[in-house]
């Protein structure tokens, strides 16, 4: 696969940008900023996909991530402590193990990429790649495509069921309450006990009320 010099320059720029912004996701205090750094990383990868002549996949990736990161920013403002990054924050556990795992996986994967001889069969007729993908989506691979659609529909129903206020065992805000073993027995009052426990727990939320 040989590419022209301008494409190589663009590739280096987008690759460096994608890696740098991916790193910044875990280095910024503000979670909302982290969401948008992640979006920047996805845009970098999407641009590389466009350079590889996979225009459809690259643009769909950018579009999907733009919507997803907006939702993510909303979720952070709603539920997370310190979403604006006004206080310095480093909320990590097993930090050294995680760094070692990340570096090791990078070295192993990069080493595997360099040491393996992959078949050299670059894409031909690349200007028709999107057309070919469209024919594939609604032709030979239609079952895969439709299965993905059905899985997404199932996810939507499941996500609404999981997130809805009214859970299977009563109000979701009260936590799960076990159903009685005998039909005429009262429902266990697990919620009152749990609220008491919560009050004694030292607050982990810093400055968030």
């Amino acid at each position: 696969m040989s590419t022209s010099a301008p494409v190589d320059v663009l590739f280096v720029l987008f690759a460096a940008g994608a890696i740098a912004t991916a790193y910044l996701v875990f280095r910024t205090d503000s979670m909302v900023r982290a969401a948008y750094w992640l979006l920047a990383s996805f845009v970098g990868v999407g641009a590389i996909l466009v350079l590889l002549k996979a225009e459809f996949v690259g643009l769909v990736l950018m579009l999907m991530m733009a919507g997803e990161m907006t939702i993510m920013a909303f979720v952070m403002v709603m539920f997370m402590m310190n979403p604006a990054g006004l206080n310095p924050m480093l909320m990590v556990h097993q930090h050294k193990t995680a760094i070692a795992a990340g570096v090791t996986s990078f070295l192993v994967l990069a080493g595997a990429a360099l040491l393996t001889d992959f078949p050299n069969a670059p894409a031909t007729q690349t200007s028709r790649a999107t057309e070919e993908l469209g024919t594939e989506l609604l032709g030979e691979s239609m079952l895969v495509f439709e299965t993905a659609g059905a899985a997404l529909l199932g996810t939507m129903v499941g996500a609404v069921a999981v997130a809805s206020r009214r859970g299977r065992y009563g109000d979701a805000e009260e936590g799960s309450i076990e159903p009685p073993l005998q039909p005429d027995e009262e429902w266990a009052q697990a919620s009152a006990h749990r609220t008491e426990e919560d009050e004694h727990e030292p607050s982990v939320h810093g400055g968030h009320s």
Partner: peptide, 10 residues
């Protein structure tokens, strides 16, 4: 691989 490593760390 670099992006994967950063993601695994996170």
């Amino acid at each position: 691989a670099a992006i994967f490593g950063i993601g695994l760390y996170g």
